[in-house]
Structure formats: structure tokens, C-alpha cells
């Protein structure tokens, strides 16, 4: 068996001589040449970047300016719009609201008009319409969330409307009925109109803050709230909440709702457990919370005075808890 012959390592060639030279080692003309080369390269790269930026700008302008679009794009009928939302509105509502004529091309659509139609529905907070050539319209909306409901005249009949935190009222057709049922009613307010549309309700930011705090910090209390009255909001800065148990709670808009909810929670079990009691809890007086309980006359009580006024129990409750309770 013969072994293959291994060639000796290759001898060094002139190509092994390192060629890189620092500018300092170059002659003046060499350095000048180097600087010129760098400047040329920089200018060339800058030119390319400028060219690319220009092309990008032109492309953007063409996309925005319908007059410069090719005729072919104008002839293609628009497809069903693509709908994006963060709420409950659906595609049927979109088509009903936009009312895009059949066979219309993308360029024939007046996006401002379509947007105005969408925003006319109080449930829509923002709306963005985008053309995607050749035949696609993309509609993105953000919706208002209801925090309460109010009875108002709508389309010639009395019906409940939903109210958002910014005071805007809307029909809210697509919302979950159970969720709508849980929302408290608003009372003692004035509904103003401009033309056919409702103006936003005043004072809703305060109501919204109270309801949001209650939902977040004391949901067991919030669930019993049936009506929120704004009747004394403008005059006394007070909100009156009526619960399903018949308890009336008065909140002060001047004070911190969190502290008031904490006081209410502290005494709530005691008061709510009084059978047939019509309690009135005033949380507007600082540390002292006057609680007035009116017990309804029992029909079977032998010593009750018929037709007489119901007995009233008034007590001044010191709301300072013995031990600190965390919410």
C-alpha cells in the first residue's frame, strides 16, 4: 500500500505582504486622494438616501392624491369594508351606517362624509377610514363604554339610553342586556338637545368617577345601586344614590369618593340588615355620618297606630373604624 505524497507547505508569495496603510504613512497626494474618495462615497450614499426618500415621498403622495392614481384603480368596485373595533359594534351596523352604494369604486367614496356618518352614532368615539388600493376600504373605530343609563325620548317614544363617561348618550343596541341591566339609572338631570341630537350630559365626569371607584373598590356595594340622582349636584355638590334595599346614600363631590366608600362599607352590613328599613346615609359631613332609619309599620303588629307616621330611628354613627380595614 502506497502513502499519498503530501506537498510541502506553499512558499510565501508577494500577496502575503500586508497592503493596508494608515493615512499618516501616505504622501500628501495619497491623503488628498483618500479624503476625496471618502467624500465621494459619502456624497454617493447621501444621494442614494435622498433618492430613496424622494421615491418614498412620491409614492406616499400618489397614494394620498386620488387625482394621480391610475385610471384602472378608479374602475374597480369596492369590496365589503374591513371593520376593526374595540367594542361590540358589528359588520351589519357598519354597512347600515355607511350606506356605500353598490358598484362604487374606492376613489368615488367621500371618506369625510363616511366618517361623519360613523361619528353621528354616539357610541363611536373615533373613526379612521383608509383606502387600500385597488378595492379595499378599512374602517377602524373605538367605542364609548356605558357607565349608566337614562330614560329619554328617542324616535318619538320613551326608551332607555346608555350614557358614557363624557356624558354622551347613545342607543347601545349591541350591548349585553345583563350588563345594561346592572347599570344604574340617572335621575334629577336635564337633557338638552341640539336639533335631533342630544347634548352631552353635564356633571357626568363626577358621576363617572364615583361609579368607577365603586365598581373597582367596592363592587358588592355598587351592585346594589339602582339610581344615581344629580338633582343636588349643581347646587350642593352632592350625589344621591338609591339602592335596591331602599337605602339612600349621599356622596359629597367635594370629598374623596374612596374615603366615603370606605365609611359606607364599614357601616353597610349593619344598616342593610335592618329589615324593611328605609335608611338615609349622609357621607357629606366628614368623620360623623348621620344615619336615619325609618322602619316601615308592620301590618301584623297589634300595637301599631293605623294611618300614623312610621317610627323613625335617628342615630349619629361614628364612622371611625376600630381597626383599619383595607379595601
Amino acid at each position: 500500500m502506497t502513502k499519498p505524497i503530501a506537498p510541502a507547505p506553499a512558499a510565501r508569495t508577494w500577496r502575503d505582504i500586508p497592503q493596508p496603510v494608515k493615512p499618516r504613512a501616505m504622501s500628501r497626494s495619497g491623503r488628498r486622494r483618500l479624503v476625496t474618495g471618502v467624500l465621494r462615497t459619502t456624497a454617493g450614499v447621501a444621494f442614494c438616501v435622498a433618492l430613496a426618500w424622494g421615491a418614498w415621498s412620491v409614492a406616499g403622495a400618489l397614494q394620498e392624491n386620488p387625482g394621480k392614481m391610475p385610471a384602472a384603480a378608479k374602475a374597480v368596485p369596492v369590496r365589503a369594508p374591513q371593520f376593526k373595533t374595540d367594542g361590540v359594534l358589528d359588520h351589519a351596523w357598519l354597512e347600515r351606517t355607511l350606506r356605500i352604494p353598490k358598484g362604487a369604486s374606492l376613489m368615488e367614496l367621500d371618506l369625510e362624509q363616511l366618517r361623519a356618518r360613523l361619528l353621528a352614532d354616539g357610541q363611536v368615539l373615533t373613526a379612521t377610514l383608509t383606502r387600500h388600493f385597488p378595492d379595499r376600504l378599512v374602517v377602524a373605530v373605538t367605542e364609548r363604554s356605558p357607565i349608566a343609563k337614562v330614560m329619554a325620548e328617542w324616535g318619538g317614544q320613551q326608551r332607555p339610553l346608555l350614557v358614557a363617561r363624557d356624558g354622551v348618550m347613545f342607543a347601545g343596541d349591541r350591548h349585553d342586556p345583563a350588563m345594561v341591566e346592572r347599570l344604574p339609572w340617572l335621575d334629577g338631570l336635564t337633557i338638552a338637545r341640539r336639533g335631533a341630537a342630544f347634548l352631552p350630559l353635564e356633571g357626568m365626569e363626577i358621576v363617572g368617577e364615583l361609579l368607577a371607584k365603586a365598581r373597582l373598590e367596592a363592587d358588592h356595594l355598587y351592585r346594589s345601586w339602582r339610581v344615581v340622582s344629580l338633582a343636588r349636584l349643581a347646587s350642593d355638590r352632592e350625589l344621591e344614590v338609591r339602592t335596591v334595599q331602599g337605602v339612600t346614600i349621599i356622596f359629597s363631590a367635594h370629598g374623596d369618593f374612596f374615603r366615603q366608600l370606605a365609611k359606607l362599607d364599614y357601616m353597610w352590613e349593619k344598616i342593610a340588615n335592618v329589615p324593611d328599613a328605609q335608611a338615609r346615609i349622609d357621607l357629606t359631613l366628614g368623620r360623623e355620618v348621620p344615619v336615619r332609619i325609618e322602619v316601615a309599620p308592620a301590618a301584623t303588629a297589634p300595637d301599631a297606630t293605623p294611618g300614623g307616621p312610621a317610627p323613625t330611628i335617628s342615630l349619629l354613627h361614628n364612622s371611625q373604624p376600630k381597626t383599619k380595614r383595607e379595601f
Binding site: A11, W14, I17, Q19, V21, M26, S29, G30, R31, L34
Partner: peptide, 26 residues
């Protein structure tokens, strides 16, 4: 095979490199 002194070859190449040019072929 033609071979030469490394220093002499390097001197010639460095003269050209001093002008910021690459010697591609000797």
C-alpha cells in the same frame, strides 16, 4: 518560480499604497 527579496518587493508596493491604491498584480 521567480522569487525576490521581501523588503525590496514591500518597498515597491508601499510606494503605491502611499497613494492610497491597491496593488492587484505584481
Amino acid at each position: 518560480t521567480v522569487h525576490g527579496q521581501e523588503q525590496r518587493l514591500a518597498d515597491n508596493i508601499h510606494v503605491i499604497r502611499g497613494f492610497n491604491l491597491e496593488v492587484r498584480e505584481l
